[in-house]
Every structure is written in structure tokens, then in C-alpha cells.
Design a protein around this nucleic acid. Structure first.
Lengths: 252, 252
DNA sequence: CGACAAGTTGATGTTACTCAAAAGTGGTGG
DNA sequence: CCACCACTTTTGAGTAACATCAACTTGTCG
């Protein structure tokens, strides 16, 4: 492999890993994905990836970086509906003339690639897309429960547990740590809080040695007991997916 | 038509109307749906229609009544993630071994029927299912914005506007009025509030002559200006769906 | 008539928001 | 290397929105 190819491979590894865990892919399917990854579009932080109400053309796959679905109010408030992490799919629709329901904005620098057509490429990829869609729905459910019924600190903890679970799917955990590049303002817009309150709540969680958060990296001191406390529900979306990926079984 | 058949038809008309508006159905498809509607399962209020983590078998269609997706906490709190209204579909999944991500509970007495297999029955029905799925996602987005960034009274108003829009799809508006059979407690669990606060907010809205709400019927005095005030976004999910159904064009 | 659920009211407490300013951080160009 | 800028994080003081607890009223149905 040439150095550039190696570099490209390292960048697309998380996305590949994620899809492969959702449904083990054949060699051909992996090649098709790699071909797609070789042709990226770079989007700078804060730029739109997709505009609300624009027709959805070809589906995309997020190769690197974090993005978010956003809604804005005329007075400047905004809500980040949910996050998109490496390996997440954008705009896979079943209807004939889909229209984007929300803006999608890059929260960090991001690269996206067009997602291979699953029908053409094969069943397992199709299944991976389907499970990815089901997971996305599952994450909406969690988000609604967080916003509707949790206190600020529980929202943050539940949300961090979700990030950990999702990043584990893409092999993006680094031992006990995982990346979290968002500003406190973005966290606030995600969790329905103000940046000030997020700041204070984070400080409290740090003081109590429940989390560590600095330099875009998070560490949860006791993820399992934390999960019990906030009644975090691990994603259980598909019968056989059971044990082949869990955050608990992350590399040391 | 026999009297019983007529009665059954009246009960299933809203569900039929909804699907037919999402994608105009052929005669055969309507017959297939009617056949499905002729074989209902009745569920009493407060009973479960689907249990969390149970495997999803055949998809269902809600013929009459209101249901909700629910999550419970161990201390008794609950969040109603979203509502299911007549004509809504339950458990249409693309993956191979789907598992229910949430409990679904009947909020009123309800009848559900198994949804005809769209692949077998035809493209338009399949398209109707697809658009129904996209709308469902759209409603999740609205719910998240409500919970994350709206005050109690805006939540209620935005939510009533959504109900109006959705009931219009199923021809369930009655002039300026529409049915709303939920208790204030259920409203509270939907909107992330307490029943007490819902009660007080509703009273304020009544006093200001913004809404009328009694006997399970709602009237919004000025839906259009209300929609502007809370920045309500009409569902725009599919390019051609444009004008063939809108709450604004409801029968007087 | 009595029982139970739903709606209403009052008093009080808490969580989170607002506004404003200070302190820290990182990147850029002279 | 430093000065400057923009952005992010942090701090403080005051306030508003919503929750909690408990009692009371109304309505419904057997």
C-alpha cells in the first residue's frame, strides 16, 4: 500500500469498522466501501452538509469528524437534534422524492463520502444500512427521554454513555478515554441547556470524580455503575447483534 | 353493504384516508387494506400493544384510538416519546431480526390490525409506508425541539398544532375542533412537564382565549398566527406531497 | 350513594436561565 | 517572540420557570 493509501485507510477505518459490526460485510462490499471512501468531500466546521428542505440526492456516509442535525429559531436559539459520528449514514430514504427534514452542519471538520448503493452491492450492506437506521431511531428515543425527564447532570451522563457506546461501534475508544470535540455551547444545544449551566454541571461532575473531560477527551470513571444510576439502556435493536460489539468489552 | 360492514368501514375510514393521502392507492391495495381492517385486535386503554425488547413480528396499523411509545423509570417517572394516531404504522422495519425499542401502550381503547405486506400488495402502498416512516422521523425531530428549547406553553401549542396536522391527514378534524382524549397527566408525560404545570398552563391558554379544550375536544382560535408564533414547521417530507393535504385546507 | 380517577388550587422549593464580566486558550501576523 | 484577536470557559448575582407536596373539588360510573 502506498503511504497515501495507508493514510486514507486509517481515516476510513472507523466508518468501515462500524458498518462491518452492524452486519459482517463480504470482501466485495468492503471494496465498494473503500472505493467510496477514496472519494471524499471535505467540509469545514460550522459549514452545512445538507440544507433543510433541499431534495435528498445520494446518501452519504460520514467518514471522519462530528456533525449534527440542527434546527434554528429566529431569535438565535438552536437545538441540535442529534449527532452524527464516523460511520453514520445520512439520507438513506425509502420514499421516492425525499426532502431533507433538517439542516445538517459539521461540528468539527468533517469528510463525507457518498454511500454505495446497497441494493447493487449486496444484502449484508443493505442489512447494515437497515440496522444503522434502526439505531438512529433508537438514539432519537434516548434523546427524547433525556430532554423530557432528566436533570442536567443525568442528561450529560446519559449522553456521554451514549457517545461511548456509539464510538465503540466505530472502534474509536482509546482505552478508558474517548474523543469529545464539542464546545460546551454545542453540548448545551444538544442537551437543551445553556452553556453556563453545562459548564457548572460539568465542573460538579469533575469535582465528584465522576468524569474527566479535558482537551477534547472524556473518561468515565465507572461507566457501569453510572449506566445503572441513570438507567441507561444499551442499544438492543436487532436480535443477533447481541454480543459482537459492546462498549464494556472495549480494548483495555 | 351490510350494517356491520358499514360500521367497520366508518371505523377504518381515517386510517384508510391517511395512507391514501400519503400515496394514492389502487383499488386492489384499498381492498387489501380493508381486508386487514376487517380483522382487528382490540386493546383496552392502558394495556400494552407491544413490549420493549420483544421481537417485532408482523407490522401493525392503528385503526382507531390513540397509543403512545413509552419509557418508564424505576421511580415511576415516565416519558411518552410520541403518539400513535389512527392510520399510523407500527413496527415496519427493514432489518432482519428487529426488536422493539420501546413499549407501546394504548392511551385510549384501541384497535390495531396487521398491516398488509407492502411488497406483495404493491408500490403505492410501499410508498405510503415509506412516507409514513419519514413523517414519524419528522415528528421525532419536532418532539426533540419542543422538549429541548420550548417553554411549557409553547410546547403545548406546538404539540396541538402537530396533532391538528396529523389528524387532518386522517380526516379526523371536525371543523375547527379536533379530538384530544388524553388526560393532563398523559400530556405532561408527553411534553416533559408535570400534570400540575400542564393544568396551570392550559388554564392560562384558555383565559387568553388562545385555545379551547374540554370534553376531549380542542379548538385553536387562530392556528395560523399560532403556528407563526411558535415557529411550527409543517411536515415537508416528500417533494410531491405538497398540496394534497394540509390542515389549513381542512373542511370548514 | 360511594369510590375512584381526573382536574384544580395553594404554598413552598429547586433547577436552570439571564445578564454581565473576567479569565483562559489558541492561532495569526508583524 | 510578542501582541492581538476571536473564541471558549469560568465566575457571580439575581430571576424566572417549573417541580413538589398536599389538600380539595369535580365528574363518572357502577
Amino acid at each position: 500500500m502506498s503511504p497515501e493509501a495507508l493514510y486514507a485507510h486509517a481515516l476510513s477505518a472507523p466508518a468501515m469498522a462500524r458498518l462491518n459490526k452492524l452486519s459482517p460485510l463480504s470482501r466485495d462490499q468492503q471494496l465498494a466501501l473503500n472505493a467510496a471512501f477514496a472519494n471524499p468531500r471535505n467540509v469545514k466546521a460550522q459549514r452545512e452538509i445538507q440544507a433543510e428542505e433541499s431534495p435528498v440526492l445520494n446518501p452519504l456516509i460520514l467518514r471522519t469528524g462530528w456533525a449534527g442535525r440542527v434546527r434554528h429559531f429566529s431569535d438565535g436559539r438552536r437545538q441540535i437534534l442529534g449527532l452524527l459520528l464516523p460511520g453514520d449514514l445520512i439520507g438513506i430514504r425509502r420514499q421516492r422524492h425525499p426532502v431533507a427534514a433538517t439542516t445538517i452542519v459539521a461540528l468539527t471538520d468533517v469528510t463525507v463520502c457518498s454511500a454505495p448503493d446497497a441494493i447493487a452491492v449486496g444484502d449484508e450492506l443493505n442489512e447494515a444500512y437497515a440496522i444503522s437506521g434502526a439505531l438512529e431511531e433508537f438514539y432519537w428515543f434516548r434523546q427524547i427521554v433525556r430532554l423530557g425527564r432528566m436533570t442536567a447532570s443525568d442528561r450529560i451522563l446519559d449522553w456521554l454513555l451514549e457517545l461511548r457506546e456509539r464510538l465503540a461501534l466505530a472502534d474509536l475508544l482509546m482505552g478508558e478515554y474517548f474523543p469529545m470535540p464539542l464546545t460546551q455551547e454545542a453540548i448545551a444545544d444538544t442537551l437543551g441547556l445553556t452553556n453556563v449551566h453545562v459548564n457548572r454541571t460539568l465542573q460538579a461532575l469533575r469535582r465528584q470524580r465522576i468524569i474527566e473531560l479535558a482537551n477534547g477527551c472524556v473518561r468515565l470513571f465507572e461507566p457501569n455503575s453510572l449506566a445503572r444510576e441513570v438507567e441507561f439502556r444499551p442499544a438492543m435493536i436487532s436480535a443477533p447483534m447481541a454480543s459482537n460489539w459492546r462498549a464494556d468489552e472495549a480494548p483495555h
